[in-house]
Design a protein around this nucleic acid. Structure first.
Length: 342
DNA sequence: CGCCTAATAT
DNA sequence: AATATTAGGC
């Protein structure tokens, strides 16, 4: 190890040797199966919010992914300056002028993040440009990368890409809140993703609702109700009789299994979109562990050990304790969905 | 006002 | 199709 790290002559030009290196490199990469399980979530959103746990610049695999992505798709231009990840913790506006305008200028969502003491609720979010820019604006960038460097201040933020990870987080939060209590602002806060704006969430939520609606329609009129499993959960009713005002604040949607596409993490056309946003901040506690976006499978397994000494119980159970039932359902739904996708 | 949602635009 | 932006209504 270490030998490959020093591929320097690289910029000299592309040669046969490079190809080999690339292949080798690729071989060493985890395959889709390994990458997929990038889940985290569970519990923390609420706690995080409650405790004002703020996001911190933790990043790891994400950057790796990002970097690899850049490497791969970067044939037509220089790589993104994702080195700027560090500054994410500042609300400021001009940390990184290069592609920062997105800062939160247009985002006044949190005017009151305020200045109380100046050190807590930094919902401060901003997307990393790089994250989104890459997969979404790629084409454009390639074509004309000349107009953006000078008009930096008027730059528009790149479109948010709802990566499977992001979507999962979204789903988890919605599950916690219950579809009924899920409104953009709240979701956004619980998701706790830097750079995510209320508008982003609102838009996605709208889409998600449409999706649910479709689902609902289908499940009702479909040949036969195939998912009693979920239907039997305490969830359904809330959906059905919305009249039940103010009772269990934990309503929830019932199985979102169909293709709200975003979940198609799997391998598709070797396209691999894992740009993920900036992970929220977890803040690992003793008994609890919040998982940032970037946890790998190993880490995931870890938690059962970490979260508590009970080793056998399903992670879900452990985390849930009494935190929220919906969370489990969310997990299950996701699982089912993923299975179904195959 | 701020936020939410539906409609519309890109 | 996926997101963003706008328009209206609380």
């Amino acid at each position: 190890m270490g030998e490959e790290m020093q591929m320097n002559g690289y910029e000299e030009g592309l040669g046969a040797g490079d190809e080999d290196q690339v292949l080798k490199w690729e071989a060493g990469l985890p395959n889709a199966d390994d990458l997929t399980p990038l889940s985290q979530s569970l519990i923390p959103p609420e706690l995080a919010l409650a405790f004002s746990i703020s996001p911190d610049p933790s990043r790891t695999m994400l950057d790796v992914n990002l970097a690899s992505q850049n490497t791969l798709s970067n044939l037509c231009r220089q790589s993104q300056p994702f080195s700027s990840n560090h500054l994410k913790s500042l609300p400021s506006f001009a940390e990184d002028p290069s592609h920062d305008p997105l800062v939160v200028e247009g985002d006044e969502n949190e005017p009151e993040s305020t200045t109380n003491d100046g050190s807590d609720v930094r919902k401060v979010r901003r997307l990393d440009g790089a994250e989104v820019a890459d997969s979404t604006m790629q084409t454009e960038n390639c074509d004309n990368n000349n107009n953006d460097d000078n008009s930096a201040r008027t730059l528009k933020k790149p479109r948010l890409v709802w990566t499977p990870q992001l979507h999962k987080r979204f789903i988890d939060v919605v599950a916690h809140l219950g579809i009924k209590n899920s409104v953009p602002k709240t979701i956004m806060q619980l998701m706790n993703v830097e750079g995510l704006t209320r508008e982003n969430v609102a838009s996605h939520l709208q889409k998600y609702r449409l999706y649910l609606k479709r689902m609902q329609g289908l499940s009702n009129e479909g040949p036969f109700s195939s998912d009693h499993l979920f239907a039997s959960t305490p969830v359904l009713q809330s959906f059905h009789e919305s009249g039940n005002s103010g009772h269990m604040p934990l309503p929830m949607y019932h199985r979102p299994l169909l293709p709200m596409p975003v979940l198609g993490i799997a391998h598709g056309h070797g396209h691999m979109t894992i740009p993920v946003g900036n992970p929220p901040a977890p803040a690992t506690h003793h008994g609890f562990e919040s998982h940032p976006y970037n946890i790998s499978r190993e880490q995931q397994q870890d938690w059962s050990a970490t979260g508590r000494t009970a080793s056998a119980a399903p992670s879900t159970m452990i985390c849930m304790e009494e935190t929220s039932v919906p969370a489990i359902q969310s997990q299950i739904s996701l699982f089912i969905f993923l299975s179904a996708c195959k």
